[in-house]
Design a binder for these strands. Structure first.
Lengths: 247, 247
DNA sequence: CGCCTTATTGATCTACCTCAAAGTCTGTGG
DNA sequence: CCACAGACTTTGAGGTAGATCAATAAGGCG
């Protein structure tokens, strides 16, 4: 898949060249012709390695970069003035982190690596300049942003569903769809985040997440082993996700 | 304020000219020089009147237009496959409706007028073409989109807060901030939506909204008369919005 | 004025939170 | 390779915030 070489070795040109990246068709380079790709490559720091727990950017700090997940996974979380944390979203390979801070210039949340992974880092200002030169980059931006907004809507809808197991079911359906969107087609998912992160994201208690998993297993929607989840019946999982309120 | 003439009269040129619009500095024209403004004016249907309950666009229908609220207010809502409705967001003067559907071309929710009002309608495709000609329009798009995404994050965070009165308090704080953002500075707000819409938006029961209002009145944060709410103590309302979970 | 929709208030019930404890996984060092 | 410590996860028992049901009150409109 990805050639992550020992750091003592000279980095392979191939790895840092966006032209060769498996994600390029879904990434910003898709908005630039091959001839001009070098212009983009010039403003990206490609393949930065992160260890689990590493911070990409901090809430309330100056936001300077957009990140593209290449391998691994990340989360963003907001801390309220009174110290309560809430996990906003999770990010999978091919997804962009930091979109919401582009205008204000201040990060509205903290981004943290959930596991060891690799991401590319793009400077906002330089990207803005490039966008003015290449109109197709602008199209790509609108496409990415409107998709992010549509996803945010779905996540928001899910957070207001009454039944806890429906929320978890919807979460799994969305997560599975996002995995599949970037070519990792399968009904088996590895959840890289801990139960507490899922609980925070869905606005439920950790214990309720556990019990909801048990319910989804009992009803034959899924089976699981720790963080490894297998969707047995996607149809049934959809039904469970759309239960009438308080059933 | 706005001159909404009797429909039997010839529409005043002034009204439909974006150059004269009080919102233009926050609207798409801000991304175009005065010399080129006519190009934009050519793709907008300005000042369309809506009556309370009128539908701007329907979920799952082909999405062709972006709307700018000029007066009045609107809501967007999603209907799940099993017929449960959820109010996604409310839209105030100066705000854009339909951003999330720009890429897919399919509306992911239904937009409805909450009261009599006026909005302008812009064709996506023509706007896309214009954006390629005017790079500053692209900057405006990114600015608008990232702000919308940041707001969606805040709304999502709010929906996962435990305490019902905290959710309502946060809702009022956000709503007030948005009203003020477009120059309607005041601590008195008129909520154009019914309690049921607020309840749906916050993921609570209508009765809980009523009781939460009562609590906010008892604690001296607000006073109210029907849908007319007056913020008495913004500091206290912030505190109420950030209560520790379950108390 | 009377009808109908919307809003509030009261009483009961329940899903989920909290607290508590046991069980499982992960990694580290002997 | 195994033993242990620590974090993570699950399961159990009881309490509570908010849902639901029910009834009254207040607007809105013909």
């Amino acid at each position: 898949m990805y050639l992550i070489k020992d750091s003592r070795m000279a980095p392979k040109k191939m790895i840092s060249d966006c032209a060769e990246c498996v994600l390029s068709k879904d990434c910003i380079p898709s908005g630039i012709s091959t001839d001009n790709l070098h212009r983009f490559v010039g403003i990206v720091s490609t393949n930065i390695s992160y260890k689990a727990g590493d911070v990409l950017f901090e809430q309330n700090a100056k936001a300077q970069h957009l990140f593209v997940v290449k391998t691994g996974s990340f989360k963003t979380q907001t801390t309220t003035p009174h110290g309560i944390e809430h996990v906003n979203n999770f990010f999978l390979p091919g997804e962009l982190i930091g979109l919401e801070s582009a205008s204000s210039g201040i990060s509205c949340n903290t981004a943290i690596a959930l596991e060891d992974g690799v991401a590319c880092k793009i400077n906002y200002q330089q990207l803005t300049k490039l966008r003015q030169e290449f109109p197709s980059l602008s199209d790509f931006a609108v496409k990415i942003y409107s998709a992010a907004l549509a996803l945010a809507n779905e996540i928001q809808n899910n957070a207001t569903i009454q039944c806890a197991s429906s929320r978890l079911a919807t979460f799994l359906v969305l997560y599975n769809r996002r995995l599949n969107a970037h070519g990792m087609q399968s009904l088996g998912l590895h959840l890289p985040m801990c139960r507490e992160d899922i609980a925070s994201h869905l606005g439920l208690a950790v214990e309720t997440i556990s019990r909801s998993f048990s319910k989804l297993i009992t009803t034959g929607c899924i089976k699981k082993d720790g963080r490894r989840v297998q969707i047995l019946n996607l149809e049934k999982l959809h039904d469970e996700a759309n239960l009438p309120p308080r059933k």
